[in-house]
Every structure is written in structure tokens, then in C-alpha cells.
Design a protein around this nucleic acid. Structure first.
Lengths: 244, 244
DNA sequence: GCCCAATCCTTACTTATGTTATTCTCACGT
DNA sequence: ACGTGAGAATAACATAAGTAAGGATTGGGC
């Protein structure tokens, strides 16, 4: 299995053989973690950078009233904040949704590699900025769109991101999220997520079963979502992965 | 009038005299811009970094259906993304709400200063990461809280941020936002913002008049918002500006 | 001092989404 | 095979927030 980080960064910038080896090197210390574990909790200050190689992770905050809001999903190739050590403490929690393979990279290693490989440094910054851009788009999504459009938009985004790391064939990919988790992501209740998914199924846009999403009518899904992939900043190689 | 950026960064880190002068130097090229102008539009690729010295700015995205969502407010001392040049194009627009004084800093100047002054580099990263943390909190705000709590939370945040740059005395500060703009920020209609403000006034939490917000019952406002300022990462000097 | 436009406020009515509760369906462990 | 529990699916009902439209204020430009 190819290295997801390598694959992701390559879609942004051409890497030399040395760059590639350096990236492989970063992933050398791997651990496997069971589902539902937290990697870093709100209030803590991690010493390492985590890189997800396999499985799904997520960022979330808990509210005093027991609510939870999911802030981001991490798929293979995604890094947690490479500059977290500048801040005193985490303001949210980073957890795993599925069993996962995680590379643990000590701060110094990352800094050293970024120092020696300017292209990697640039690519890592790109990845960080894209994460932030995704956050902005989620804000728009929740703020401005109704439940149906919102879910459609999320599915389009996850589809594109999974494709970018080679984890979606055609319109089908792993989506290990419960309706409750989808609700906590979109600011909806699980009940309403269910209603909305029924409708999307009835209208033959998607199939969602046994933790896999199949997009059955991509053009219409993209259209109803008003999905514009520019915020993912896949520009350079985006041609390869055109929407249709 | 003191330099707002200097003031903000000082609340995070102790700066040397040299650092201070370097920061002052960054602000040397100033322009004044009239209200409602855009500084950088979606799709463009700016060459300079903008620093807001006076007035209010905001980031927003327009939707195909004519909707608008406001992603962030910029108050004096705030910078626009110092690494925007890594991405090919802006995925949102940066505009001004009021007449403003803006410092224009060429990329190279910023890079040069960051290179020569590691403390400034660190402080600028801190500012960037805080901006992102604010984005996350906004997502939670819109996703999980009702209109009343949402507005209360926004007011708490803006109050804290204005205080951090010395622009709020007691519970009063400039808030040049129309109800429509508040709505586009919180994912609400102007009508509902109005209703909600009425209620907040009736319950004596705030006064909002002639573009100024006065917080009349801070403890209750903070409590109803469930406001936890940790995400603003004001840790070091936060003691000075305790909530109550 | 007066006009115009923007902002604000208000009302009556509609609707999307939340709430609560019950049943259904598997996957899994013993 | 059997029970258990998490997740999914429904249903009836409640409510927060949206819509549309009009009137009241305000403040800046002449």
C-alpha cells in the first residue's frame, strides 16, 4: 500500500527522490490504535505530531451541556497540526473513529525535515492551509445550507478527498460514520440526518450501507450541493481528478 | 495611538526593543481605505500581506444563490493570512466594513523580519493559529447553539478580542455591524437577529446602539453563552484581563 | 432644514428541524 | 441458537427560525 501522505503531497508539488525518502522516514515509527481512542485531549499539550496512515480520525469539542461538535475528519495522509506546540494547550480533542495506523513524529524530526527539504516544508504548509480552508467551507455549509444540501456537500468533499489519496474507486468509498456523527458534524439531530438520507436514497443520489458510500448520480449530487472544489486547492493536478 | 499589532503580540510573548522596532517598521507603509471596499477577492492571488491598523474588516464567501456567509471579523492588529502565497488563489474575499487604515507589507518584508526575529516569527504563528481556533469555535457556535446563545457567544468573543488590543473600555466597544451582517455571520436571518437582540435588551444583558455594544451584565452574558475563552489562547497575560 | 436610503423594527404566517419514544435489524459474543 | 446492544428507521408532535411585507427611525448629503 502506497504512503497516503506521499500521495497527497505529490498532488501539490513534485517531490525529488530525496524528498520521498524523507517522507517515508517520517512514517517509520508506526503504531496501531483501536477504534474510539483519543489521541490528544482538549487541554493537553502534545509533544509529537500524529500522521494518520490508515483509518479515520476526527476533531471534536464537547460542550458543557453534553453536546459534541465534530470539527474535522482526518483520513489517511492527514496530519494533526504541525505547529500545535506553539499554543499552550489543545482547544479540542483529536480522536479515532476506526481502528487506525498512526505514525508518531517527534517535533524535532518534523522541524529537521522541513529545514532540510524546503519542498516538503512548502507542501506541509499547503496541507495545513487546506485544512483551514476546509474549516471555512464547513462554516459556510452549516451556516447557509439546509440539511439536504449540507449532507450532499459533505459527501462531495469527502469523495474528492478520498480520491486524492487513492481511496475511492469510482463513486464508492469507505464512510465509517454513524448518523449521529453525521448529525454532530452538520449541526443536525440523528433523526433529521436519517430523514435526509432517506430522501437522498429515494432520489437516487447515493447509497449508504455497511459503512460505505456509493455515489449513484455524481453530477446531480454535485449540482444540488452547489459543490465548488476550489477550496480544496487541488489545482495543479486537479485535471487528473476532474469531477466528471 | 499605540500599534495594535504590537499590543496584540505583546500579550503573547515578551518582545525586545529590536523586535518592537521591526514590527513598527512593518507598518510603515500605510493607506487609508474607504468603507465597503474589498482588499482581496476570491480567486485572486495577493502579493502582499495586509495588516489592519484601524477599522473593521471581514472575510466572506458568496454563494451561487446570492447568499453570503461571513467567516471572520478582523479588528485592529489582525493580519490576513501570512502564507496565502503558498495557495494559488484566495478561496474567499477579504473586505472592509468601515473606513480603515491598512498597512501593506510585501511578502519579502514579512519573511525577512520573521527570519531575523524568531520571537516575532513565533508570535505571528501564534496569531495565525488563534485565528484558526476562532474559526473552529464559530463552527461549534453555529452548529450547536441556538440564536440567543450564539449571539451572546459572539459578543463575548468580540469583547475579549477588543480588550486584548485596548479597544474596549469596561463593557463598551465599537461594533459596526448591521443586523444583516450579524445574521450572515451566525447563519440567521436579519429578522431573527432583531428578535434575539430585542430579547437580550429586554433581559438587560446588553445595549446595542449607534454602532456600539455595551455589555450591561457581563457575568450573565458569559454564563448564558457558556463562554470559555481558552480557545483565544490568551494564556500568558490573560490574568490581566480576567473575565470578571 | 429636508430628503433619501439604509437600517431597524414589527406582525402574521409558514416551515424546517428538533423532541420523544417505539420498533426494527443486524453483527457479535457466549 | 440466543440474547444483547448499537445503530437505523418511523411516527406524532412541538418549536425555533424563516418568509414576506410594511412602517418607523436614523443619519448623511444637499
Amino acid at each position: 500500500m502506497p504512503n497516503a501522505l506521499l500521495r497527497k503531497l505529490s498532488s501539490f508539488i513534485d517531490l525529488s527522490e530525496g524528498d520521498r525518502q524523507a517522507i517515508e522516514g517520517l512514517c517509520s515509527h508506526r503504531i496501531t490504535v483501536e477504534a474510539k481512542r483519543n489521541l490528544v485531549r482538549e487541554g493537553e499539550r502534545p509533544n509529537d505530531v500524529y500522521l494518520l496512515l490508515d483509518g479515520w480520525g476526527y476533531r471534536y469539542k464537547l460542550l458543557p451541556d453534553g453536546g459534541r461538535h465534530i470539527l474535522a475528519y482526518l483520513i489517511p495522509g492527514d496530519l494533526c497540526d504541525i505547529h500545535i506546540f506553539i499554543l499552550k494547550t489543545m482547544d479540542h480533542t483529536l480522536g479515532l473513529l476506526t481502528p487506525a495506523t498512526v505514525a508518531i513524529i517527534p517535533q524535532e524530526r518534523i522541524l529537521e525535515v522541513m529545514d532540510k527539504h524546503p519542498r516538503i516544508e512548502r507542501a506541509l504548509w499547503w496541507a495545513t492551509l487546506v485544512d483551514e480552508a476546509v474549516l471555512r467551507e464547513w462554516l459556510v455549509n452549516i451556516g447557509q445550507r439546509d440539511a439536504y444540501t449540507r449532507l450532499a456537500h459533505l459527501f462531495c468533499e469527502l469523495w474528492m478527498r478520498m480520491r486524492a489519496v487513492g481511496l475511492a474507486d469510482e463513486g464508492r468509498f469507505s464512510l465509517p460514520l454513524t448518523q449521529e456523527e453525521l448529525g454532530d458534524t452538520m449541526g443536525l439531530t440523528a433523526v433529521h440526518v436519517n430523514r435526509t438520507l432517506q430522501r437522498m436514497r429515494a432520489e437516487k443520489l447515493i447509497m449508504l450501507e455497511s459503512r460505505h458510500l456509493t455515489i449513484t448520480d455524481a453530477p446531480r449530487l454535485v449540482e444540488t450541493a452547489g459543490f465548488e472544489p476550489n477550496y480544496l486547492h487541488l489545482d495543479r493536478r486537479a485535471e487528473i481528478a476532474k469531477l466528471r
